[in-house]
Amino acid sequence: MNRFPALNPKRAAIIVVDMQSAFVGEQALFPNVHALEIVPAINRIVSNARRAGAAICWSRHSVVDHGRARQPDWQRFESSLSSQSAAHLHPQASGHRLYEGLDVANEDLVFDKYRFSCFVNAAIDLDGWLRERGVEDIFVAGTISNCCCESTARDAAMRDYRVRFLSDATAALTDEEHAAALLNAAAVIGEVITTDAAIQQFSEAADPAI
């Protein structure tokens, strides 16, 4: 559906969605084995993109008790996932932290978000932050493919960013849900590519002779 021009790494950003201790790792409170499996792919694209001059952004899904970021009461009934996860995704909770095996650098952007999409009701104006840096191309990685990753990718496309959804650096709870998210991404959001293909794009941008 989309034909993107050649990549300019300095106008690109990697958005890694919600790779937090509550979801990733052997001790995760809400374990997702597939999220742990994509950590090497995420670290590869992040390190290559950072070296090429791209912006690296890490979101943390957050639950707060007060203010405009608080979820509505109808989402917080006792048996809901929102209520069950609240204590573990509070900004001071250990589950809120990014998984320790990720390649997070001091210069990266780390921010909290309070809804599925990184572009809606987050602690920062991500769209404004990206535009200040001239970002035009966004690569989406992280978890869960068919929820926060897809929501972020869709909202990025609706803001006219060129979106690449990394098929092997995103993860859902099941293969079927992951495949559905990739289908949606390819059909109406942007381009679905592998981590290797994304790294190749950064390499070709750094050396046009390749």
Rank of each mutant, 00 (worst) to 15 (best):
Ser94Gln: 15
Asn106Leu: 12
Glu107Tyr: 02
Leu98Ala: 05
Lys113Pro: 03
Leu109Gly: 00
Val120Ser: 12
Val120Ala: 11
Ala105Cys: 13
Leu81Ile: 10
Glu107Gln: 08
Leu109Asp: 06
Val110Tyr: 11
Gln84Cys: 12
Asp108Asn: 08
Ser85Arg: 15
Ala93Arg: 03
Ala93Lys: 00
Gly128Val: 00
Leu89Asn: 00
Leu109Pro: 03
Leu126Ile: 03
His96Tyr: 11
His88Ser: 13
Asp125Thr: 09
His96Gly: 04
Gly128Cys: 02
His88Glu: 08
Ala86Trp: 09
Phe116Leu: 14
Ala122Gly: 14
Ser83Pro: 12
Ala123Trp: 08
Ile124Tyr: 00
Asp125Asn: 14
Val120Met: 13
Ser85Gly: 12
Arg97Val: 00
Leu126Trp: 04
Ala122Asp: 11
Leu89Ala: 00
Gln84Asp: 10
His90Ala: 15
Gly128Arg: 04
Asp125Ile: 09
Gly95Tyr: 05
Val104Tyr: 08
Glu100Arg: 09
His96Pro: 08
His90Arg: 09
Gly95Pro: 03
Ser85Asn: 11
Tyr114Ile: 00
Tyr99Pro: 07
Leu102Thr: 09
Pro91Lys: 00
Arg97Leu: 13
Asp112Ser: 12
Asp103Trp: 01
Glu107Ser: 10
Ser85Lys: 13
Gln84Ser: 10
Asn121Phe: 03
Ile124Val: 09
Leu109Glu: 08
Asp108Tyr: 06
His88Trp: 12
Phe116Tyr: 15
Asp127Glu: 14
Asp112Gly: 03
Gln84His: 08
Glu107Lys: 05
Leu102Val: 12
Gln92Lys: 03
Gly95Thr: 01
Phe119Arg: 05
His96Trp: 15
Ser94Tyr: 13
Cys118Gly: 06
Asn106Ile: 11
Leu89Tyr: 01
Gln84Tyr: 07
Ala122Cys: 12
Tyr99Lys: 10
Phe111Arg: 00
Glu107Asp: 12
Arg97Trp: 03
Ala105Tyr: 13
Arg97Asp: 15
Ala122Gln: 12
Gly101Val: 05
Pro91Asn: 02
Gly95Val: 02
Ala93Trp: 02
Leu89Thr: 00
Ala122Val: 09
Cys118Met: 01
Val110Ser: 11
Ile124Ala: 03
Gln92Leu: 08
Val104Thr: 09
Leu89Arg: 05
Glu107Val: 08
Ala123Pro: 09
Asp125Ala: 07
Leu126Met: 02
Arg97Gly: 07
Gln84Thr: 07
Arg115Met: 08
Leu102Arg: 14
Lys113Gln: 07
Ser94His: 14
Glu100Ala: 11
Gln84Asn: 12
Ala122Ser: 15
Leu102Asn: 11
Asp127Gln: 07
Leu109Lys: 03
